[in-house]
Amino acid sequence: MRQYNIYDHPFRRVEAVKQGWSWPAFFFSWLWAAIKGLWGILFGFILLQILLLVIWDALEIPAINLFDIFIQVALSFVFGLKGNAWREEKFLSRGYLYADTITAANSTGSIALYINKNRKQANNRDEPHD
């Protein structure tokens, strides 16, 4: 079971973001950023890649070298560490509000638990009290 932060928006669907390390972001950095709509992160990554190619070319260093491999692995670690936080920042900047932290097997399950929990709370408020 994993912990997910739930983000709710009055006009958009509920979103869940897993807490901690992101394996998909680690392994598929730029592709993951594109799929998740993290355009600033994606363009920054692409610009850094172009800058590295220009530097390697100017220094007449082969494009694939030990230092470049180290940089690529380091970037993958940054994506793995910060990926979920970047998603949370994206949701907050688009008007989502942090709603809850739910423990569940996956993000779909965490959203379902959040919706059911809110439904029960709403039903309890609507019941007449004697």
Rank of each mutant, 00 (worst) to 15 (best):
T108C: 08
I50R: 01
Y96N: 10
I69V: 10
S76N: 13
V54P: 00
L97Y: 14
G44S: 08
R119P: 04
L48M: 10
A63L: 09
R94Y: 11
D100N: 07
D100G: 10
S29I: 00
Q72L: 11
L113A: 14
W32A: 08
I102C: 00
G44K: 05
K36Y: 04
E60I: 02
A104L: 05
L51Y: 11
G95N: 02
A85H: 14
R87P: 09
A74H: 06
A58C: 04
A74S: 12
K36T: 07
G80D: 12
L92E: 07
N116H: 13
T108F: 10
F79D: 04
K36M: 07
I41F: 03
P62K: 07
I46K: 06
I50S: 04
I50W: 03
R119Y: 07
T103W: 09
F91P: 02
A74Y: 05
T101S: 08
K36W: 04
I115Q: 02
T103I: 10
L59V: 04
R94L: 12
T103C: 05
G37N: 05
L66V: 15
I61F: 01
G109R: 12
I111E: 02
A99L: 03
N84P: 10
A112V: 15
E60K: 15
G40V: 13
L81K: 11
Y98E: 04
W56K: 13
D100P: 03
L52E: 15
L113Y: 04
T101D: 06
S29F: 00
F26G: 00
G37E: 03
L66K: 14
L38Y: 00
A34F: 09
S29R: 02
I115G: 03
L81H: 09
I71W: 01
I46Y: 09
I64P: 00
Q72T: 12
W32F: 12
S107E: 08
A74I: 07
F27L: 02
F26Q: 00
I35N: 07
A104S: 03
A33T: 02
W30T: 01
W56D: 15
D68T: 10
A85V: 13
N106W: 01
N116Q: 14
K36E: 07
I50T: 01
W32P: 10
